[in-house]
Design a binder for these strands. Structure first.
Length: 314
DNA sequence: AAGGCAATAT
DNA sequence: AATATTGCCT
């Protein structure tokens, strides 16, 4: 309680000394490697057949930062909510500008045949609120009473990402439609939606793993990763972490599989090379020292998962 | 009731 | 092709 740091408003104000408490001891801005720099020299990247990262512009970096914050906020929203206050809404960074034309990868969740603009369903609950930018527009339609025919859900990259995150955090045991739906906390999302998607997801993830090895791989699936913390909440599921710490979307029981399968138009035809020697290795069981894993999911979505090397302390 | 899954429908 | 539905089990 007490002090609350509004991450969104945080900004460096020159080299002043009134740094926030949690900043003490952290490197200065100038000590940090600018994110606009490439981390991997192009020759090195070429040598290892890593597709060279696109050079980042400041807008890229800023956007990434917002992503990160949003993510942290989202996964931390439970705690934040408990501190009452306005509680920032998860995914809602208003796209200030259209920066690069091909770069809008934060589209809203929409249902077929509706305007891309979302409608916000106001909940008076207070403790819980659906992600506004993942919000489903229709819902209402004409839902007077008789024909609550919802239009087909469109699994946008954002939605799918959320899905993946939740599934990953639940582990295969806990990843059942209802729970997933709750934790995703997307307004209008039904259990059926999730079930259907989950079915397909499993199908594809399975398909690309002719993993016949009867022995070692199975028990990895059956573990129970991050379950404990996020259970009980049957109404407004928010993601939290076991320890009070921030939980970056890591700790995945298994890596999202990369399945060669085209899908909805990715804004940027992201050609991010997958980790090289990926021929037929067991797709899981190696969530180890990777700082950043760039990969594609089953449907062609790009994922940049930051893996804190020493993420959660045990 | 809720899951999982295959078949089928839209 | 992507989602939704349905049927039939567990």
């Amino acid at each position: 309680m007490g002090e609350e740091v509004n991450l969104t408003d945080y900004e460096y104000s020159g080299g002043n000394d009134d740094r926030l408490l949690w900043e003490v001891g952290l490197p200065d801005v100038d000590d940090l490697t600018p994110l606009t720099l490439q981390l991997i020299p192009s020759e090195l990247a070429a040598a290892f057949r890593i597709s060279p990262e696109l050079s980042k512009t400041m807008t890229d970096v800023n956007r990434a930062s917002q992503n990160t914050f949003s993510s942290l906020q989202r996964w931390h929203s439970q705690d934040m909510a408990s501190m009452n206050n306005s509680y920032f809404k998860p995914f809602s960074y208003e796209r200030t500008r259209e920066e690069t034309v091909t770069e809008r990868d934060e589209t809203d969740l929409i249902r077929e045949g509706s305007d891309p603009r979302k409608l916000r369903r106001v909940e008076s609950g207070g403790t819980e609120e659906a992600d506004s930018s993942l919000c489903n527009e229709n819902f209402a339609d004409d839902s007077s009473a008789k024909t609550p025919k919802r239009s087909r859900l469109v699994w946008t990259p954002q939605l799918h990402k959320r899905f993946i995150e939740v599934v990953a955090h639940l582990g295969i045991k806990g990843a059942v439609p209802k729970t997933i739906m709750q934790l995703m906390n997307v307004e209008g999302l039904t259990r059926e939606n999730v079930a259907s998607h989950l079915q397909k997801y499993r199908l594809y993830t399975k398909r690309m793993q002719p993993n016949e090895g009867p022995s070692s791989s199975d028990h990895l699936f059956t573990s129970t990763p991050a379950t404990e913390s996020m259970r009980e909440s049957s109404e407004g599921g928010h993601l939290r972490n076991t320890n009070g710490h921030m939980a970056t979307p890591t700790l995945m029981p298994y890596q999202p599989q990369m399945v060669p399968m085209p899908m909805m138009g990715m804004p940027n035809g992201g050609h991010v090379g997958m980790p090289v020697g990926y021929g037929g290795g067991p797709p899981l069981g190696f969530h180890h020292h990777y700082n950043m894993v760039q990969q594609r999911d089953w449907s062609g979505n790009n994922f940049g998962y930051y893996h804190p090397v020493a993420s959660n302390d045990k």
